[in-house]
Amino acid sequence: MSRQFTLAVTVVLISTTVQAEVAPQEVAYGEYGAIDTSLSGAPGDPASGAEIMANRGQGNCVACHAVGALDEVPFHGEVGPPLDGVADRWSEAELRGIVANAKMTFPGTIMPAFYKTTGFIRPGDGFSGKAGTEPLEPLLTAQQIEDVVSYLMTLHEN
């Protein structure tokens, strides 16, 4: 009796048009952690970015970083460096990589990865203390990352 083995070939169709959104697992980080293109496929909104950075339920970046331009927001932390002048120190692609997963740029950093959904130890369901199921929702959406990056790009030393 002869058997015929049929190989099921999965064809991954790669769209030639502009990718709408890059999912967290598909982000292409450069050698030093940069991400070249917009994660959402759209430009960011700096005003929204500023809000996300100050909001405890969203980025809450000021928990660890002081931002001179956001001095109306109370209580800036000192766990990370002040962000004044970051746009002079980093390119947009580098900043995008740092916000999405800072560990690609600074191995072992305390800074959480905002666009990472798997590979955690005892991942929780938000702040409930209960178990969560991977992939988790990323801490920020692709568009929120773009908004934050576009705000960071306004932070020049004056």
Binding site: V62, P74, V79, F120
Partner: peptide
Amino acid sequence: YTRYGQLELACANCHEDNYDNMIRADHL
């Protein structure tokens, strides 16, 4: 020293590496 959760933080990250620093309104 294990970095738990989606924020990947160990006790040591806050209480060994950052004591005396402010984390938002909290003095670690």
